[in-house]
Simulated scan of single mutants.
Amino acid sequence: MHHPCFIGDSVIGCRVNIGSFCSTTALRCDRGPLTEPASEEITVNLDGQRITTGQTKFGAIVGDEVALPAGTVLAPGTLIGPGTVVYPRDHVGGFLPAGSRIR
């Protein structure tokens, strides 16, 4: 990253292009006010199944050679496969298979 960003509680692959002001959100914020320490476990939806992570803070897993445009926010538990290109948008979440083009 050569720009202001926050990529926390995440795993980032090789040769990933992260645009300025990208961030990962590692805490659930869809069930009311946030409290620390976090108590809501982050789950990942994969092929229609909910998989528990065992973590209360979990950003994203971003595969090799992914391009994220400026200002992208990744939801907790986002999985992005290698070679995926995300076109400009404000929020990305869920599972994006390898080689996807997300508009």
Score class of each variant (00 low, 15 high):
P76Q: 09
R15E: 10
I102Y: 09
T25R: 04
G63K: 00
R89P: 02
T53G: 14
I7G: 02
I18A: 00
R101F: 04
E36G: 02
T25E: 09
G81P: 03
F58C: 14
I102P: 00
V86Q: 01
R89N: 15
T25Q: 08
F21K: 01
P76H: 10
A26V: 08
E36F: 15
V62L: 08
P88L: 10
G71W: 04
V85L: 11
G13P: 03
P82Q: 07
G59L: 09
E40K: 11
R103C: 09
K57E: 14
G48M: 04
R89V: 02
V66F: 01
V62F: 02
T35I: 11
I51A: 09
L34V: 15
T35N: 14
G71M: 11
G54H: 13
T52M: 13
P76G: 08
D64S: 04
S39N: 14
S39D: 10
F95E: 11
A75D: 07
T53V: 11
R28S: 13
V92E: 04
G8N: 13
G94K: 01
I51T: 10
G83R: 00
A98M: 05
R15T: 04
E40H: 13
Q55G: 02
G48K: 02
F6L: 13
P33G: 07
R31S: 10
P97G: 03
G59Y: 07
L46K: 12
C14Y: 03
V66L: 01
L68I: 10
T56E: 13
V62W: 01
P37E: 13
E40L: 12
P76F: 09
G93M: 06
R103I: 03
E65L: 01
A98T: 08
P69N: 09
D9H: 13
G63C: 02
S23M: 15
G19T: 05
A67R: 08
E40Q: 15
V62Y: 01
G71L: 09
F58G: 04
I51C: 12
G93L: 04
F58E: 05
L96D: 00
A98I: 02
L27S: 14
H3Y: 14
S100A: 10
V66Y: 00
P82W: 00
G54L: 11
V73C: 13
G59I: 04
L27A: 15
S39Y: 10
T53M: 11
D30N: 14
T72D: 00
P88A: 08
E41R: 06
M1H: 11
L74I: 07
G59T: 06
I61S: 03
K57N: 06
R103N: 11
E65D: 15
V44K: 03
P76R: 09
E36L: 15
Q55K: 14
H91P: 02
D30I: 12
V73R: 10
P69G: 05
N45A: 07
A70C: 11
T52D: 13
T56P: 07
F58P: 02
P33D: 15
T35G: 15
I51M: 12
A98L: 02
G99W: 02
V73D: 03
V66Q: 01
G13M: 05
V73L: 15
S10R: 05
A60G: 11
G59K: 05
V16G: 01
